[in-house]
């Protein structure tokens, strides 16, 4: 994607579009992450602590059950309190580091979630150990510790300040960031969500013989974008400087060899030009033929309406035998 990008300008304008199905996310910058859409259900935030669907890890943190992690935590805590005074500065520094490591942006968290279950669990345990000790320290040995005001902890795991039985007040900033995090989490399709990405499944490209490419899931993608197959097809053909046909299974057969990335790039420009609302960036728009043979895009989110150019093929060179025949 990087090397064959036609221009830097286009790349920047494409940033907002991401390709995905439920699992796979191909970001505009080319990175591939796995979305944990179903996993979100049980890995909830501190908000839902009271609900019965709390994640097991969180449970172990809150309840005084006989959990392995808790044991370890206590051990650590004891050790911690011993040299608490001596290495107070140290602890603060460590806490800072800890905080930095965990309170990164949502994206990071998402990625973290995406790791395999066991792996994730192990990591969580580890993080919990560290954080638990920190949180406990704050709660119990608060008077001595200068880290008292530290607003740390992972809200996804419900540790630190996000602990259910935490009595310390939470300052405005973490609360605000929690609000936005939750908003983005619960409304992945929200236009103003943090990621600002619009997700459509990646195009499936197959090769037919040596000279043709089959774009298999064009129907699905068009449905997702709410555009007709014909419109998308004509745009693809115009941009790729080629032609093709539709086969029996509504797959698009394109003349020429194209890779998935290339089709993806063209779809990106299509989405930017013909799908997203320029005003509110929502992809929830409709293309309609207005008066004077002009095409209009009406936004279903904000109601704005803009005209778009009809797809023009432009100059297309004659390639192959016919050109020779014409000339000679």
């Amino acid at each position: 994607m990087s090397s064959e990008e036609p221009s830097a300008q286009r790349r920047t304008s494409r940033k907002s579009v991401a390709f995905t199905d439920e699992k796979l996310v191909v970001d505009a910058d080319g990175t591939v992450t796995i979305m944990a859409s179903e996993d979100d259900q049980h890995k909830d935030t501190a908000m839902s602590h009271t609900s019965p669907t709390t994640a097991p890890v969180t449970e172990s943190a809150d309840a005084d059950g006989l959990d392995l992690s808790l044991l370890k935590k206590k051990k650590k805590k004891a050790k911690k309190e011993e040299d608490a005074d001596a290495a107070d500065d140290d602890a603060a520094a460590a806490a800072d580091g800890e905080e930095g490591a965990i309170d990164l942006s949502m994206k990071k968290k998402k990625k973290k979630k995406a790791v395999k279950e066991e792996d994730d669990f192990a990591k969580k345990l580890e993080a919990l150990k560290l954080e638990g000790k920190e949180g406990d320290e704050v709660a119990t040995a608060a008077a001595a510790a200068p880290v008292e005001d530290e607003q740390s902890g992972d809200m996804d795991k419900g540790t630190g300040i996000w602990q259910h039985d935490e009595t310390k007040g939470i300052t405005y900033d973490p609360l605000l960031s929690r609000f936005f995090a939750l908003l983005a989490q619960k409304n992945p399709d929200h236009a103003s969500s943090g990621t600002r990405s619009y997700k459509i499944p990646p195009p499936q490209c197959l090769r037919e013989g040596n000279k043709k490419t089959i774009f298999a899931n064009i129907a699905e993608i068009c449905k997702r974008m709410k555009r007709t197959d014909e419109h998308v097809t004509s745009y693809l053909f115009a941009e790729l400087g080629t032609s093709g046909s539709v086969d029996g299974a509504r797959r698009l057969v394109i003349k020429g060899r194209f890779q998935q990335k290339q089709i993806e790039n063209v779809l990106r420009t299509y989405i930017i030009e013909y799908v997203t609302c320029k005003t509110c960036r929502s992809p929830n728009t409709e293309l309609s033929k207005g008066e004077n043979r002009l095409y209009f895009i009406t936004c279903n989110s904000c109601g704005s309406r803009r005209s778009v150019q009809a797809i023009k093929t432009g100059f297309s060179a004659q390639v192959g035998k016919r050109r020779k025949m014409q000339q000679g």
């Binding site: 036609p6 790729l240 400087g241 080629t242 003349k255 020429g256 060899r257 432009g314 100059f315 297309s316 060179a317 390639v319 192959g320």
Partner: peptide
């Protein structure tokens, strides 16, 4: 408008 067209094989044309 700068366009690209595929010719035979790996060959392309820029118009």
């Amino acid at each position: 408008h700068i366009r690209i067209q595929q010719r035979n094989g790996r060959k392309t044309l820029t118009t």
